[in-house]
Design a binder for these strands. Structure first.
Lengths: 330, 330
DNA sequence: CTGTTAGCGCCTTCAT
DNA sequence: ATGAAGGCGCTAACAG
């Protein structure tokens, strides 16, 4: 490359990087540019990273790609990275421990920091690994004990918004189909649900809560449990859209019509919510903004500014698509 | 590291890489291992890549992460990479041209090859870029003119399977809700649909096909169009699950009941198909295997064996979940 | 069995 | 305005 242009390689390096402190003879510039064009030259990212000690890239660990509850966060992260000129690598976190460790190790050398979008409290291996690599890491919409930094929603608020909406419609017997209670997100929503119920003077009898594990099948099984008794709740608050899909399957299979027989509300995580049968009334969540903020926090950290824990304000507005209605006597 | 262990760095390198051709004094091995443990040492992937001229990593370009029609392929790719000890980087391909070019350029330096899981025929920029970087690239379940290598299903077969099933049930007036007809996948399915209809002696009157663009909204709009006329088709064959979601929304909004008023069948792309209302009868697709094969082909190519175009056999079995029934007179 | 050496491609002083 | 030289961390000959 340098040879073709007939200049020193350091000149090429400076020129191509558009080094502001330097200036060049028009002829030199032209020669270098022409040579680069002709050779289809592009800098070697590895060599650059080695020299600079910086990758200009971050990774985000996601639970599994089947799970579409997370895509809006990814969009926000992607945008923030784009704007910062940083490459985003998305990686499934993997379920088995050894598989996970290997994958993480391979990733660690390729990025300047990592966003974690999934973790159970019990996931000590992940925590250990993060401690070990000493790479900046930020947890997104989920956290674990001892987590470095996390960027979260006010999940208590979000759960409370479901309760408030249902109570305003006249419901008093409300069941909670929660997310995986070994995750802090679900725990915080549980607290929010309970407090909101209490604030309305309502109790939560036994059998009115089931853990739906953040996935379709879990949502289905939990819903079946919740409506199995003689006296059904008049409404269901579901922690995530993915689980709500399973819930819908269960209710339809049981011949229940929504919202006539039972009202349902969930948290908004995907455009899909507008296209289920029936479309779902949801609590709006600005996941995209959450993703942006988390990515920005991580990127700042990489640049030297330590990140802070952050709660992203989200309006908790209700998007009413008609899956809730006042209760009818059974 | 080498200093702490009191040995030469080349010894460390060999030993840690578990070089089979070499053997070591027990004491040396112990010292190196201890030092590595103590220091939390891990090899610098960049330096390694620079030295070896190999990244041990490939990328897959996906359309957008909202789209869950593709996750099973990813799973297969991920598995194959895992087995080969290669890191998989997933990246959204990006919609705007400049954004896309930048992202691709950044990616190019970090991988040994790239899998492409989305492309429209009109996407000449992508093609140009692929030609430009001279990196092994394999198209997955989709191809474009001039594509290097592609790993595909027999899509004509898949579309024909939908027709055959519907005709076997007694349908003769079948509409085709196709995928984005600027993609070769949709084109091939269209051919398969038409041939199968012809083979059954059936024609496809005007108004019995609509392009649903591979997304929910497109599926919805296309379905509305297809059932708008005075005389509805008795069955709908839908090219993808994502579109089928939109289709369900449209049919329900129109008050049509499935399969009583109209039968629907689609191609199986996600566990979601079992949980829609009603659950969808589908043509089984082994996307996971497709992903494995594509990844394997790419990895072989990276290792020097040029890849070949490949059609992955898929049984085209029908998974009957009850969304089709014999037609009733309107 | 282990040390020495060269060089992967790049960026950054330091000269000129 | 541009060239010269060192070194980022690693691996692969080649010595010994």
């Amino acid at each position: 490359m340098a040879k073709v242009a007939g200049v020193d390689l350091s000149t090429v390096s400076r020129l191509l990087r558009d080094d502001r402190a330097a200036s060049y003879r028009p002829e030199t510039r032209a020669r270098v540019l022409a040579a680069a064009e002709q050779l289809g030259y592009r800098v070697n990212a590895q060599a650059r990273a080695l020299r600079l000690g910086r990758q200009d890239s971050i990774a985000i660990l996601v639970p599994d790609l089947d799970n579409f509850g997370f895509t809006a966060v990814l969009r926000g992260v992607q945008e923030a990275c784009e704007e910062a000129g940083v490459t985003l690598l998305i990686s499934e976190i993997g379920s088995s421990a050894p598989e996970r460790t290997d994958r993480l190790a391979a990733l660690a050398g390729r990025v300047d920091g990592v966003l974690v979008a999934h973790a159970q409290d019990t996931d000590t291996a992940l925590q250990a690994w993060l401690d070990d690599i000493r790479l900046p890491s930020v947890f997104v919409q989920r956290s674990i004990p001892g987590a470095s930094v996390s960027v979260l929603f006010d999940e208590e608020n979000n759960a409370a918004a479901m309760v408030d909406h249902l109570v305003a419609m006249g419901h008093r017997d409300i069941a909670h189909l929660s997310g995986d209670l070994s995750t802090d997100t679900a725990k915080r929503r549980k607290v929010g649900f309970d407090s909101a119920m209490a604030a309305h003077g309502l109790s939560i009898p036994r059998g009115r809560r089931a853990d739906g594990g953040w996935n379709i099948e879990g949502g289905r099984a939990a819903a079946e449990k919740l409506v199995a008794g003689r006296k059904r709740p008049t409404a269901l608050a579901v922690d995530s859209l993915v689980q709500a899909i399973g819930m819908l399957g269960a209710l339809h299979a049981k011949g229940l019509s929504i919202p006539d027989d039972i009202s349902v509300i969930t948290i908004d995580e995907h455009p899909l919510a507008a296209h289920t049968t029936p479309p779902l009334t949801t609590v709006y969540l600005d996941q995209r903004e959450l993703g942006r903020r988390a990515a920005t926090a991580l990127l700042d950290w990489v640049d030297g500014t330590p990140a802070q824990n952050l709660i992203v304000e989200s309006p908790s507005d209700i998007i009413d698509r008609g899956s809730t209605a006042p209760p009818v006597a059974q």
